[in-house]
């Protein structure tokens, strides 16, 4: 049994009434969002709905204008990416931010190298990297001393995800991890995403692909024009309903009751 079915504590991350503007443009309007331990929360929405902005607010890249940020039930102030990392929040961006000319171990520890005395503790880093990959049942990577430039798209994504997990993170946010991958690699990455949650992390997955969303998520959060249209359990909704939430902000009883309204909750 994973955490999701047994112990249902509160959400590990909870945002309440988040506002965010860039100059005169208000991008997020009173957004509520939750991510739970042991679950994959899919964040969906049309282009420009505010997904990336929301994620960057969670990751501390954009300061929030108004609203509450609760981590494990406690209100916290996240002023920058370091604060988020200290809480245990890691974000894997679409471009992965890996250094091509370094190997897997160097990438995973980039900027946070382990030292013994004044020299780098290569042995420990190598062992930790290999352990993390093995712990995620990653079998496609031959050697952890391989240069990242020699890896396929799926393998790079795997390394980027493993890098996020290495730091005992509690929340991992993935921005379209399968966007540039072929079918077989997409499946491997999605299975990896699912395993992260089954191991007890809270995972937030941004995706445009409904199959990917339904294949791995436990909850779906749909943003519509900067407002949270609905956060629902995946098992209770259909494909058509989610598409409606994305495109119209509402579906039957779900979603924003007036499309221009004040974000009535589902």
């Amino acid at each position: 049994m994973t955490a999701s079915e047994n112990q249902v504590p509160g959400p590990v991350i909870e945002l309440r009434g988040i506002d965010k503007s860039f100059g005169p443009v208000q991008v997020l309007h009173g957004v509520d969002f939750e991510a739970h331990v042991g679950e994959v929360t899919a964040l969906v929405g049309d282009n420009g709905a505010g997904k990336s902005t929301l994620v960057k607010c969670i990751g501390g890249i954009h300061p929030i204008d108004a609203g509450d940020y609760l981590f494990e039930g406690r209100p916290v102030h996240v002023g920058g990416p370091r604060d988020a990392a200290d809480l245990g929040v890691e974000i894997v961006y679409q471009d992965l931010a890996l250094a091509d000319n370094l190997d897997i171990v160097q990438n995973m520890f980039l900027g946070r190298e382990k030292k013994s005395g004044i020299v780098l503790d290569e042995y420990t880093m190598e062992e930790l990297a290999a352990e993390t990959l093995a712990g995620l049942s990653v079998r496609t990577v031959k050697s952890v001393r391989q240069q990242v430039s020699s890896l396929s798209g799926g393998q790079r994504q795997t390394v980027a995800i493993a890098k996020a997990v290495l730091w005992n993170s509690k929340v991992v946010i993935l921005d379209e991890p399968t966007a540039a991958l072929g079918v077989a690699q997409t499946q491997q990455v999605l299975e990896l995403v699912r395993r992260l949650a089954d191991k007890g992390l809270a995972v937030v997955l941004i995706s445009h692909n409904m199959n990917d969303v339904f294949a791995v998520s436990d909850r779906i959060a749909a943003l519509y024009l900067g407002r949270m249209a609905a956060q629902v359990k995946t098992r209770d909704v259909t494909h058509a309903q989610v598409v409606e939430l994305i495109t119209a902000g509402r579906s039957g009883d779900l979603g924003l009751q007036q499309a221009n309204g004040n974000g009535a909750k589902a």
Partner: peptide
Amino acid sequence: MREIYMGSAAQVRSRLAV
């Protein structure tokens, strides 16, 4: 069935929800 499910999960789970 792994490939078939991953390629049609939205339909499978929609049907299950109904």
